[in-house]
């Protein structure tokens, strides 16, 4: 790769030191430190415009206009809020797009099977429903066997029922693949349902960092879940 992204083997999946990102003169991220352990599922919460998506874009190497030190795995994958499939490529070709070598249909089919989309291998993306398109995007991320999966509000455009299914699917594939995940979300319950650790971003830094020591599958009615939820909402300024 190039400047800013270091090539070294570290025990961390993500290591960020003194990261600052300015837009004009306003620092959206200022002197931020963050470590993510391999295989850890981290949810990043924060009010709109607090810089959480900016942080994700930096970790995805979509933004190099930064100062500080950022170390991320070479094998990364990103899931965006919109599926961002290429409409002119059949679903399976979208899944393996960018992989080295000739498009490998079998690999695509395997990944699509994993997300329950094996019946949609040969259709155009425009034909897919919102939930199906987001699952295809997840298959496209997983086929890269990432060490770090970056998810930028991947469920927020889905309807409530589809969201529950998609959330369950992410949980399932994460447990199977064991990659580190950084999930950017607005949804406190979603964070608590999925993550090992929740972060809240405030004033350009990680303002709150707490483990979620709840048994999986998580139970919304668990008093500890309720307590964490109330605490996070308070942190986010909702009372």
């Amino acid at each position: 790769m190039a400047t800013g992204v270091q090539r070294e083997v570290t025990p961390k999946a993500v290591s960020v030191r003194g990261l600052t990102r300015r837009f004009d003169d306003r620092a959206v991220i200022e002197d931020l430190d963050l470590d993510i352990e391999p295989g850890q599922f981290v949810a990043l919460l924060g009010a709109s415009g607090c810089g959480k998506s900016t942080l994700l874009r930096i970790l995805a190497d979509l933004d190099r206009d930064v100062s500080g030190e950022v170390t991320v795995p070479r094998k990364r994958a990103v899931g965006f809020q919109a599926p961002r499939l290429m409409p002119w490529k059949k679903v399976w070709r979208n899944v393996v797009l960018g992989l080295p070598g000739k498009p490998n249909r079998e690999r695509a089919v395997a990944a699509l099977t994993e997300v329950g989309l094996v019946h949609r291998v040969d259709v155009w993306p425009k034909v897919l429903s919102g939930g199906e398109a987001q699952r295809a995007a997840l298959a496209r991320a997983l086929v890269r066997e990432p060490d770090l999966l970056l998810l930028d509000e991947p469920f927020s455009a889905l309807d409530a029922l589809t969201r529950i299914t998609a959330r369950g699917l992410v949980d399932e594939v994460w447990q199977r693949h064991g990659c580190a995940v950084l999930l950017v979300t607005h949804d406190v319950e979603e964070a608590l349902a999925l993550a090992d650790r929740v972060l809240v971003m405030q004033d350009g830094k990680i303002g709150y960092d707490a483990p979620v020591d709840l048994d999986r599958p998580r139970d919304v009615t668990d008093p500890e879940f309720q307590r964490l939820r109330a605490e996070l909402l308070a942190r986010l300024g909702v009372h």
Binding site: A60, D61, V78, F80, M86, L97, G98, L99
Partner: peptide
């Protein structure tokens, strides 16, 4: 532009972006 960005995260280089996007 969002598709170009997606292509970058998929590891497509400049020629790949031109050809596939």
């Amino acid at each position: 532009a969002s598709l170009i960005e997606a292509a970058r995260t998929l590891g497509l280089g400049w020629f790949g972006q031109v050809r596939h996007v």
